[in-house]
Design a protein around this nucleic acid. Structure first.
Lengths: 347, 347
DNA sequence: GCTGGACGGGAGAGCGCTCTCCGACGGTTA
DNA sequence: TAACCGTCGGAGAGCGCTCTCCCGTCCAGC
């Protein structure tokens, strides 16, 4: 209107149209201090007329807040296969649930997540640089590997960060996690209740604390039920690895009548193999998964599984991070969620 | 070192340490113009010493480039269920593939995607504001619904944007798409080759152009093969909707011996129903899916399906967007990808 | 009538960077 | 030797915003 739209309108433009100073427009926009109602209306009209939107870079420059956070999926890519890690991790329904939970919390607050993958040293440097540059106010970190160096580096750089899952080594950083042992116990109880006496487990990668906890919890619970020996086969949290693990288990222990898989994807793979070998689930073999993700519902029979409230956990992660961003001195805090058993047809 | 780390080092700090001017440091950092090699070394040493990282907000303010783009998943949420849309769309493996493809292109270029969901009018406003603010240089838009108002609004606001899939109404905007009709033809050919004579299809939501094209292409091809009538049941691209559609099809046409499902998720649902009704796949009924996403491999039998090179398409989307960002006057361009048939066990 | 304080608006500095312009310097040409 | 030119560093403006001061106005209180 007042000027050709070669360049977007600025505070200055709005101020000129409204006949007030830049400062006043800023006060109206940000709702700080009292501004006369008449002038407020004047300013708002000018904003509408000009189509003004505050420039974020300029604002960030002075407030030192980006209004964005980094959502980092971290892990080791198979060397040589650059994008394979990204593809794998993004395709996992788990990622979608995390993103959904994070977004649910962040959106109403006008904070936006930047998606980053840290699968190589180079990529980790990028993430760190991004945060140090102030492009994001903090990081939400989901690591798939135990020996991820990123958490330590973030702490060293004093960058606000929250992890999904307890770090392998204790470091002063906030995280949310699940009581994995309690979850595994739920699975064990269910299997024993169903009358299983020859129970095995498909474990997750044993360098991941969560996998260790699920295994420990499961073994302990089974031992308490009078089954001190539980055969295990290690998988990699993928459907294919679950198949392979189940094949091994079946070859060595053909009399198995109950299986606990450390996640649903592996349970799905195990189910396929059991059915291929003519075992009826749950009649011949009872099967319990972990996570309660979409595959659990798509399987036939549908999976009895330990529910991990991923969305809630992700939202809590975001909440913690924003608290750290707002109050830099805040000490690390961890929040542990309780799993529940979702009973369906497989056990 | 030279100052307590209360505030991150700036260009000024580096310049002081190196004993040169701010401009020179900037030139070294950005590699513009010639700078004496000795001075370059001096500056680099100073950068290392101070741990300097350029402040992105300040840079953006002057260059008018954010170095980020918005990755927008757009569609209509079921009213009342705020986060349901986000959860659904993010859980779809399709989203992961898009994100992976986009990231693959963007990462080497130092551009970061901001994840946004546009499921309500409010959310669309946020996306628009975000882009107008200059927080992102452009948008990559994946719409799940045909009547999405966002593309038009983006064009009106002259914001660089690229769509995944052709818009319902022709508007001057770049997009990538698949030759859906050709893909459906591939499926029809396969079904007929397999000896099917009673073929039905589980279509996608018919307000989506891609669904329409797949249906049209399939019908045309079947007609050419001498089967002018093809029963259809409409689904919603989810596994559950595929189940329901298959049930309907089976009730009305119990003699079906071939099914084309417009995506793998629905094919997965259809497979479940077929098996429940005692139909062997592929012996009694041949089944072809569409997408070649992870469910296709997890099914037993594994799905014969039309492969959509989503990752490549997403990368191309990113490439197009960056071109538009770099050259604002560029006219809209569309890139159409060719599907291929992945033959597995289901047909 | 004068003072003090609450209120509301303006002026202006400065956030950290890029980039244009200018000037110094050394080497070539007439 | 003077005029010219190319190379390279510095000075300084200014991107669009926030926020601290400061100042004018109005009214309660003595």
């Amino acid at each position: 209107m007042s000027r050709p739209p070669t360049t977007p309108p600025t505070l200055e433009d709005v101020a000129r149209v409204a006949g007030v100073s830049r400062a006043t427009v800023s006060r109206v926009v940000n709702g700080t201090r009292n501004v006369d109602v008449k002038i407020q209306e004047l300013v708002r009209a000018a904003i509408d007329e000009t189509g003004y939107a505050p420039n974020r870079a300029a604002r960030s420059l002075v407030t030192k807040r980006a209004g964005t956070i980094a959502l980092v999926m971290s892990g080791a890519g198979d060397p040589g296969e650059e994008d394979a890690f990204a593809a794998r991790v993004l395709a996992d329904p788990f990622f979608g649930r995390v993103a959904g939970g994070v977004l649910g919390f962040l959106r109403p607050r006008g904070v936006h997540p930047v998606l980053m993958i840290a699968d190589t040293e180079r990529a980790r440097e990028d993430v760190l640089a991004f945060l140090r540059q102030g492009s994001a106010d903090g990081a939400l970190l989901v690591s798939t590997h135990a020996e991820d160096p990123l958490p330590v580096r973030l702490v060293e750089s004093k960058i606000p960060a929250v992890l999904f899952a307890r770090p392998a080594r204790p470091i002063p950083i906030s995280y949310v996690d699940l009581d994995h042992q309690a979850g595994a116990r739920l699975a064990a109880d269910r299997l024993v209740e169903s009358g299983c006496t020859q129970v095995a487990t498909v474990a997750g990668p044993l360098d991941v604390p969560a996998s260790q906890d699920r295994l420990t919890g499961f073994r302990d619970a089974m031992a308490r039920h009078g089954f001190p020996y539980v055969p295990i086969a290690e998988g990699g949290f993928t459907s294919a690895s679950g198949e392979a693990a189940m094949e091994r288990l079946l070859a060595e222990h053909p009399d198995i009548d109950g299986v606990f898989a450390a996640n649903d994807l592996m349970a799905q793979g195990a189910l396929l193999v059991l059915q291929k070998h003519g075992r009826r689930v749950p009649d011949d073999v009872a099967l319990v998964g972990f996570d309660d993700s979409s595959p659990a519902l798509v399987c036939r029979p549908r999976l009895t599984t330990v529910r991990q409230p991923v969305e809630d956990m992700a939202a809590e992660m975001a909440r913690l991070l924003m608290a750290h961003v707002e109050e830099p001195g805040l000490r690390p805090k961890s929040v542990i969620f309780e799993p529940t058993l979702m009973v369906r047809e497989s056990a």
